[in-house]
C-alpha cells in the first residue's frame, strides 16, 4: 500500500520520515494493514500521489484532512480579531434591517399598498406598471403572504441601498486605476461564483445567527457585484473626447467626476442596480437559512416539511416580487437614459 516508500528511500529521507511514526494510528492505516495480503504492486494500481497516499509512505507529510483543519484553525485564530473589527462596523446594518422590517410590517396595509403603488408610479410614470404592482400586491395579500412579502421587500431595499452606497465608490476607483481593476476583478468573480452556501459558513462563525447583519452581509456580498462592475464599465465607456473636453476647459478631477462621468455613467449604474435587486432576491431563500424573515422562510418550510403547496405558493410570491421589482427598476432606468441624450447622443 505504501506505494511511494521507494521514492522517499531513494531521496534519503527515510530516517526523517520514520521519526515519531509510531504515534497516531489512523483508520486508513488499520484498513491498509488488513488488506495487506491482497496488495499487488502492479503499475495499474498505482494510486495518485495525493497528500493522503504520500502520508502513508512518510508520516511526516500532512494529510488533506490536516489542510482543512488548518484552514479552520486559522479562521478560529483570526476570529476574535476579525470580530472585534467587523462587529461594530457592520452593526448599523443590523439596525437598518431590523428597523426596515419593523416599519414594513408595522404600517397598516391600507397605507402601505397605496404608498408602494405611488412610489412605483413616481419612478416609472407608467400606469401599466403601477397597475401591475397593485395587482401583484393584492394577490400576495389575498393568499396571506403580504407580511412576508413586506419583510422581503424591506430586506431587499436595505441591501440594495447598501450595495449602491458601497459599490458605486468602489466602481469609481476601479475605473480610475487599471491596476486596481486587475486586482478587484478576480475578487468579484470569486464572490459571484462561490456557491452561496459557502459564505454563510464563515459568517456563522463570526456572528450570532440571530443577528440580522449575518444575512445582510451574505446578501450584499453576493449582490453588490453588478453595481461595482457596471459603475466601472459605465465610467470607462464615457466618450474619451468628452473627457478631453472636460479637461481642456479646466475641470478638476472632482468636477469631471460629478459633472461628466457619473451623469454619463448613470444608465449603466442603473442597469447594475437592477441586477443587484434581482440577485438579492435570489439570495433571500438562502438567507432564510440564517433566520432572514420573509417569503424565504416559507419556501424553506416547504422544503423541510415537504409541504409542496406552501413551498410553491411562497416561491410564486417571490416570482411576483421579482417581476414587479424588475419592471419598476427597468422602467426607471429607461427614464434616466431617455430624457437627456445619453443613448442617442453617443451614437452620433
Amino acid at each position: 500500500m505504501s506505494s511511494y516508500r521507494a521514492v522517499f528511500d531513494f531521496l534519503g529521507l527515510r530516517a526523517w520520515c520514520d521519526e515519531g511514526a509510531a504515534g497516531a494510528v489512523s483508520m486508513s492505516d488499520l484498513l491498509a494493514k488488513m488488506g495487506k495480503d491482497q496488495e499487488g504492486s502492479s503499475l495499474f494500481s498505482l494510486p495518485f500521489p495525493s497528500l493522503d497516499v504520500l502520508n502513508q509512505s512518510c508520516s511526516h507529510l500532512p494529510r488533506t484532512r490536516d489542510l482543512t483543519i488548518g484552514i479552520e484553525k486559522l479562521f478560529l485564530w483570526a476570529r476574535s480579531g476579525l470580530k472585534s473589527v467587523l462587529d461594530p462596523v457592520t452593526q448599523p446594518l443590523s439596525w437598518l434591517l431590523d428597523g426596515a422590517i419593523h416599519i414594513a410590517t408595522a404600517i397598516p396595509w391600507w397605507l402601505m399598498l397605496p404608498a408602494i403603488v405611488a412610489l412605483s408610479w413616481q419612478l416609472t410614470r407608467s400606469l401599466k406598471i403601477a397597475a401591475l404592482v397593485l395587482c401583484s400586491l393584492l394577490i400576495l395579500g389575498f393568499v396571506d403572504h403580504l407580511d412576508a412579502a413586506m419583510q422581503t421587500l424591506a430586506i431587499i431595499f436595505v441591501c440594495t441601498g447598501t450595495s449602491v452606497l458601497i459599490g458605486v465608490p468602489i466602481g469609481i476607483v476601479m475605473a480610475k486605476s487599471d491596476r486596481l481593476q486587475r486586482f478587484i476583478t478576480p475578487l468579484l468573480d470569486l464572490l459571484q461564483t462561490l456557491p452561496t452556501f459557502v459564505y454563510l459558513i464563515p459568517l456563522i462563525f463570526l456572528f450570532s445567527v440571530t443577528e440580522s447583519k449575518l444575512y445582510g452581509i451574505a446578501i450584499i456580498a453576493y449582490a453588490i457585484v453588478p453595481v461595482i462592475r457596471l459603475t466601472d464599465l459605465g465610467i470607462r465607456l464615457v466618450d474619451p473626447e468628452v473627457i478631453e473636453a472636460a479637461d481642456a476647459f479646466g475641470m478638476t478631477p472632482r468636477q469631471r467626476l460629478l459633472r461628466v462621468e457619473l451623469p454619463l455613467a448613470t444608465p449603466n449604474i442603473m442597469a447594475g442596480v437592477n441586477q443587484t435587486i434581482m440577485m438579492s432576491l435570489a439570495m433571500v431563500v438562502i438567507a432564510s437559512l440564517v433566520s432572514a424573515p420573509g417569503l424565504g422562510i416559507l419556501v424553506l418550510r416547504g422544503i423541510n416539511n415537504l409541504e409542496l403547496g406552501v413551498g410553491v405558493v411562497a416561491g410564486l410570491g417571490i416570482v411576483l416580487l421579482a417581476v414587479i421589482l424588475d419592471r419598476t427598476s427597468k422602467a426607471a432606468l429607461l427614464r434616466t437614459g431617455g430624457h437627456g441624450a445619453f443613448s442617442r447622443g453617443r451614437q452620433q
Partner: peptide
Amino acid sequence: DLVELRRTKMSMVFQGFGLMPHQ
C-alpha cells in the same frame, strides 16, 4: 497652474465636438 491656464488662457474645439450629451 494647468487648471488655471486651461480655464483662462486657452479654449479648445474638437473634431467630434466633445459636447456633453446630457446637457
